[in-house]
């Protein structure tokens, strides 16, 4: 099985440790990975901001880069959601039947990491060790676009040493929404305030999610307020083992 790693642009640039952790987990399970260098960005920011036209070349690039792989895996529910749910529509908008056919053929093979582990590989214990109190934020796109359900929690529940505590009002949006956080900064901040309050209520030291984008948002406030809670992509927790219990270099807030 040829597995192509899709490391979204902001993970590559700002959160490389989530990508590194993804590699560590999958290699530990015995899989060989490939990282095609032609990849850049899925174009979600453009689509969500109204600049659909600009994204068609990115769709072409994605298909060119990943078309030959048996499976494509990414540590980002949001970007996989973009590819799976929005690319088919963009290809239709581009009035390019060949592109539409390529997208249609590729899309079912593009997976978010935790779904890939649980559904495709049939694994729920990845042999991780993480002796920390963790709460999990189910991101909007992971739940309501990709419908990954409780797959991340099922994986986390099998991590040795972990103390997984439920997050109240977990499915409520953190207020990120891409450029929404800047264009409607006040409303975004009001939503974020509620999410931060809920996270602190859990007494967790680590907030985990399947999306670095939402974690960047919530983590930005956790750090600004010096709350002492750090964020971790779920891959970083799954990558941690005894002797290397903290896979990433995320700093505590």
């Amino acid at each position: 099985m040829r597995i192509g790693l899709f490391i979204p642009c902001f993970v590559d640039t700002l959160f490389p440790h989530a990508g590194m952790a993804t590699v560590r987990v999958l290699e530990r399970l015995g899989h060989q990975l490939d990282y095609p260098e032609g990849q850049t960005c899925c174009g979600q920011m453009h689509v969500n901001s109204g600049y659909q036209r600009e994204v068609v070349p990115l769709v072409r690039n994605f298909v060119r880069t990943f078309g030959s792989y048996d499976q494509v895996v990414a540590p980002s529910a949001s970007c996989v959601g973009e590819v799976r749910e929005v690319y088919p529509r963009l290809a239709r908008l581009a009035r390019d039947p060949a592109l539409a056919a390529d997208v249609e053929a590729l899309v079912p093979r593009v997976h978010e990491l935790t779904s890939f582990l649980v559904d495709t590989l049939g694994v729920d214990d990845v042999g991780a060790y993480f002796p920390h109190r963790v709460t999990f934020h189910p991101t909007c796109h992971s739940q309501r676009v990709l419908h990954i359900g409780d797959r991340p929690q099922r994986l986390l529940a099998r991590v040795r040493g972990i103390e997984l505590v439920p997050l109240p009002d977990a499915t409520e949006c953190c207020g990120f929404g891409g450029t929404f956080a800047v264009k409607n900064a006040d409303t975004s901040s009001a939503m974020l305030a509620s999410k931060v309050a809920r996270v602190l209520q859990t007494g967790a030291e680590v907030l985990a999610a399947a999306d670095n984008s939402c974690l960047m948002h919530i983590g930005g406030a956790l750090h600004r307020q010096r709350t002492g809670v750090r964020t971790a992509h779920v891959a970083e927790i799954l990558a941690a083992t005894e002797g290397s219990s903290w896979g990433g270099t995320e700093r505590a807030a």
């Binding site: 590559d12 800047v182 930005g220 406030a221 750090h223």
Partner: peptide, 28 residues
């Protein structure tokens, strides 16, 4: 902790992680 202009909307209530020294691609 503070950015000018458009991105100032972000840093009004949130910090932003700095771009680390090495990208995933460079690590790979």
């Amino acid at each position: 902790e503070r950015l000018p202009g458009y991105l100032g909307g972000w840093t009004s209530t949130r910090d932003l992680p700095a771009v680390p020294e090495r990208t995933f691609r460079e690590w790979w």
